[in-house]
């Protein structure tokens, strides 16, 4: 066992999760690959969405994978950073909008 939770090498082992439960893994990867193929959105656009979501869910594996994928597909440094800002803005906004709930409660219980 390693002495830390995240190992870069583990990203390459993702496909091996089927060793413990193959039918579900097969279904997941089949669906996953179809999701990221060309569709109504391009594979390139989907990479950038995935990069933003990766930051929102703070998954180091996903950040590694979708930074590479987005850069390889041609997004500029500035475009990548703007996608991260979108993720950050949604996360920040999601926290802040609960301020309304706080205000409502204060108004409910205060004189």
């Amino acid at each position: 066992m390693s002495n830390h939770y995240y190992n870069e090498e583990d990203l390459n082992k993702f496909g091996k999760i089927g060793e413990f439960q193959k039918p579900l893994a097969d279904k997941f990867f089949s669906w996953y690959n179809e999701v990221f193929g060309e569709g109504a959105l391009t594979a390139k656009e989907k990479s950038l969405i995935a990069l933003a979501v990766a930051h929102a869910v703070q998954c180091p594996y996903c950040i590694d994978a979708y930074t590479s994928s987005s850069y390889e597909k041609g997004y500029s440094d500035a475009q990548l950073m703007e996608a991260v800002h979108v993720a950050a803005a949604i996360k920040g906004g999601a926290a802040l909008v609960h301020g309304v709930q706080m205000m409502n409660k204060v108004k409910e219980i205060s004189m």
């Binding site: 391009t42 594979a43 390139k44 590479s68 390889e72 597909k73 041609g74």
Partner: peptide, 17 residues
């Protein structure tokens, strides 16, 4: 040619862009 240590993306998609 990729400008770095990575592989080219889909040739068809890149050609369109």
């Amino acid at each position: 040619n990729p400008a770095g240590a990575f592989l080219p993306p889909s040739q068809d998609a890149l050609e369109k862009e």
